[in-house]
Design a protein around this nucleic acid. Structure first.
Lengths: 160, 160
DNA sequence: CTAATATCAGGACAACTGATATAT
DNA sequence: CATATATCAGTTTTCCTGATATTA
């Protein structure tokens, strides 16, 4: 595993031209773009823990308190506090499990779904507005193709 | 402003094929890739606030405590605590400003530069290893071209 | 004298951990 | 007895406010 020589002293602003240099800038660009995107959709209304719970329920579906706690690597007690804050905000609701009376199945309310939808819409509004204004048709195609590539990159299993 | 219709119920996993659908997935892919990359370079050694200070000093150069506080939107006293923790860790050092005796100019130590370099190296190790293993030469070129596009996207000024 | 910088002291809050009770 | 949840209590963390010394 050849650990590449990394120039830290030189900021990322220097315009890179070579293919390898451009690829090396990918992490920096990802970070920058992410910050720009989350400026648009402020999940600042939620604490990071709250948002993590919402995202988990959204992607993995309804689940119990303990499953949520395990998924985020913390104790059920701590998760209980976070969940109950979301319940009183009206973003999460719990129903008793018909098969096991001990458990409570937690799921997102319509309000939460709507809130997340608004966030995504804000991001995509900015995204499409900017792309339409600044990118040519060929560039749009190139960017769309790169989304597929980056998806493969993010999903690739680890090789060591 | 035309707020686009956003489908929240359908998870992002459904493979999109159209150009617009792919572009709409850009935020999700960015987030995913970022999480993947920061798995590799653990800045878990630092708290978010500490890391923010380090990044600020790295990109904007040496500055005073109050400037750092203003940049992160907090009080000088709070920033003082963060900075002094970094000083005692050996990642930040302060020198009195020769022109203004009230101020102390804070800058990153060689150790901090080295630490960040190691983080970047880890990210890029993973990145190039994966790209080399899974991407064709044409795909590498496409991805490199997209880095330029995303840089423009992230740097674009707001249009409303 | 005022404004700006830094620091000391103490407070509020959010999230954590540990321990315990109760129900399945 | 093991598991799931709820809750009380105490701790840590992070940012806050107030007060003070120093320099411009």
């Amino acid at each position: 595993m050849g650990s590449a020589v990394v120039d830290v002293a030189t900021p990322v602003h220097k315009t890179a031209t070579g293919e390898t240099e451009l690829l090396a800038e990918l992490p920096a660009v990802i970070g920058k773009l992410r910050r720009r995107l989350s400026d648009e959709a402020r999940h600042g209304e939620f604490t990071p823990s709250q948002f993590s719970v919402i995202r988990r329920l959204l992607t993995d579906g309804p689940m119990t308190l303990t499953s949520l706690a395990r998924a985020d690597g913390m104790r059920p007690q701590s998760m209980g506090a976070i969940v109950s804050s979301l319940v009183s905000l009206g973003y999460v609701s719990g129903e008793p499990d018909p098969h096991d009376g001990r458990q409570t199945i937690l799921s997102l309310t319509a309000a939460a779904i709507e809130f997340i939808g608004a966030g995504r819409a804000a991001k995509q509004d900015w995204l499409f507005r900017t792309i339409d204004a600044e990118f040519s048709e060929a560039e749009r195609r190139a960017l769309a193709a790169a989304v597929l590539l980056m998806k493969r990159l993010a999903d690739s299993r680890d090789i060591r």
